[in-house]
Nucleic acid binder design. Structure first.
Length: 530
RNA sequence: GCGGGUGUAGCUUAGUGGUAAAGCUCCAGCCUUCCAAGCUGGCUACGAGGGUUCGAUUCCCUUCACCCGCUCCA
């Protein structure tokens, strides 16, 4: 009966989320639906804040990133090009004897768990037929539901960015290096949704595709490529190669998480080993958070080379190369040996990609030569760094991190445990609770409502006059509201003119109270919650 | 999809083959009430479907959801 501690903590979090209106089970009145969750009033505010902060941080506060909002359903050919139609459909077999589940294509390589001397394919366990398992949700476009009308709900937002790369490039007046950002829903028909909202079938992503020059191009223009270096590399420089850009985005993303209240000590950086990397990835760093159920991924930052743009160029027949005047000029001035060396490196990379993609070697050699010859004309296919974050996972991380319990024993010796959600003020669903000390005194109520109206244009406020003042503070603590403003009799001038039109500002984390003139309230609270 | 566990108000729990109990929360009211005070009143539940039975929340079957393992990577 005794559950692990982490499980108890998760149960408390789940219970609080429902009780206070952060997260509900989807379709609950019909018994729920596995892998789908709804955000209640507080959860919706929290999520908006997080997405807004990400957008401001990634798009508005920079000159080099443009936004995009693409459709969820796109041409199914996008998912053929991206590889999702093939790689998202692993045939699986189950063994009824040992209860194991295996990928059918690996049955010859995986030892049987019960009889390791034999492979799964040759052991005596009773196995099911291989079942195709595509993680993409399918639907049909148009009234006819046949093979020709099949479409998919996007399993990631990234592909739309690649598909619209040329349009954004032409209309945003950006030049490489630059990024395209998108926030939106994605859908995966997961085998096993698990860990509350952590692995959901419908979820939201915040993705940036940051396009950079291939190292050969950087070297041709700058004469060198800066090494990856340690720590945050600072302001972007034109001699950065992919490794430094990758490092830069890892550090930027960690800074972002710290800025919204996830302490560095709760985060881990995991550099995938060469064996773990996808074949097109040069490096991938996972940013992990210590969830109560284990340390799990919040975001992956992948250096994906020019794989995605190349795939779409190949599958759509539309060129994805960009023109760069600087490259054309610089190429002319290169010493011949270096020009030859860069040509060769670029050629070999292209040839490698093409042959891995199934292009026959002869054709690949010709195409790679064309591509490398393009350098002299200033043409190249950009590489990309992809910081890809899960919104819902981040919400869960923020909730888990904010959750804290405080036990207090009152004068009568009664001990009770209260929950305080210690959200960073920037993400807190409600910034300020406005409370009249007493509900049954019209003067207090009227004054408190005036304060509410004063703050409302600037901050998310919540007016509450129900129950005792202590109860209302406690309610706001559970909602994670960082500040409460209380209007009392001093505010009305009953204790002398010097306290008239001042209110009590009470801090969530310390319960400390400060007397503040109403005239200074908005500026002070805006400063503290920004 | 396979195996194990769980399912009673918003939350946490009690209970029975014969009309379901409590605490907290929530709502309304009283009270110059600053950290879930007190008093009065109120709403709300046996996850869903089927079967056995005179009668099922309780017994049986199915299903759904959640938790723990096998898979996954936002």
């Amino acid at each position: 009966m005794a559950e692990p501690r982490s499980n108890e903590l998760m149960e408390k979090i789940v219970s609080l989320c429902k009780r206070r209106g952060f997260i509900y089970q989807s379709s609950e009145i019909y018994g729920g639906i596995n892998g789908f969750w709804d955000y209640g009033p507080l959860g919706a505010e929290l999520k908006r804040n997080v997405k807004d902060l990400w957008w401001r941080h990634i798009v508005h506060h920079r000159d080099d990133v443009a936004g995009l909002e693409a459709t969820i359903i796109m041409s199914p050919r996008i998912w053929e090009a991206s590889g999702h139609v093939d790689t998202f459909s692993d045939p699986m077999i189950d063994c009824k004897t040992c209860k194991g589940r295996f990928r059918a294509d690996q049955a010859n390589e995986i030892p049987c768990p019960q009889k390791p001397s034999k492979m799964v394919s040759e052991c005596h366990g009773e196995k099911t037929e291989p079942r195709a398992f595509n993680l993409m949700f399918t639907t049909h476009v148009g009234p006819v539901q046949d093979d020709s009308s099949v479409a998919y709900l996007r399993p990631e937002t990234a592909q739309a960015i690649f598909a619209q790369f040329k349009n954004v490039l032409e209309t945003s007046r950006q030049k490489v290096p630059f990024g395209i950002a998108q926030v939106g829903k994605a859908f995966r028909n997961e085998v096993t949704p698990r860990n509350y909202t952590f692995r959901s079938r419908e979820f939201e992503q915040m993705e940036l595709e940051y396009f950079i020059k291939p190292d050969e191009v950087v070297e041709a223009i700058q004469g060198r490529v800066a090494p990856a270096g340690d720590g945050h590399p600072g302001e972007p420089q034109s001699d950065w190669g992919w490794q430094r850009w990758h490092k830069y985005w890892v550090e930027e993303r960690i800074r972002f998480y710290e800025s919204i209240g996830l302490p560095r000590t709760t985060l881990e950086e995991y550099w995938q080993t060469p064996e773990e990397l996808a074949h097109y990835a040069r490096a991938t760093v996972d940013i992990l958070f210590q969830f109560p159920f284990g340390t799990q991924e919040l975001e992956g930052i992948a250096a994906r080379s020019d794989f995605d743009l190349s795939q779409h160029a190949r599958c759509s027949g539309k060129p994805m190369a960009v023109f760069d005047e600087e490259l054309r000029t610089a190429w002319k001035d290169l010493e011949e040996p270096r020009r030859q060396a860069l040509w060769q490196r670029y050629h070999d990379a292209r040839y490698g990609y093409l042959t891995r993609s199934g292009v026959d070697p002869e054709a690949a050699a010709a195409m790679a030569k064309d591509d490398a010859d393009g350098l002299a004309k200033g043409n190249y296919v950009p590489h990309v760094i992809e910081p890809s974050a899960g919104v819902d996972r981040l919400i869960l991380a923020l909730i888990a991190n904010a959750f804290s319990e405080v036990s207090e024993t009152d004068a009568k010796g009664k001990t009770e445990t209260r929950v305080i959600m210690r959200f960073h003020p920037r993400v807190a669903p409600i910034k300020v609770g406005v409370l009249p000390l007493l509900r049954n005194k019209p003067e207090l109520v009227q004054k408190a409502k005036a304060v509410r109206d004063l703050l409302r244009p600037h901050l998310t406020v919540f007016y509450d006059d129900g129950g005792s003042i202590g109860r209302r503070y406690a309610r706001q603590d559970e909602a994670g509201t960082p500040f409460c403003v209380t209007v009392d009799f001093e505010t009305l001038g009953e204790k002398g003119p010097e306290l008239a039109d001042t209110v009590t500002v009470r801090e969530r984390d310390t319960a400390a109270q400060t007397r503040v003139p109403i005239a200074e309230l908005a500026a002070m609270l805006i400063a503290k919650t920004r």
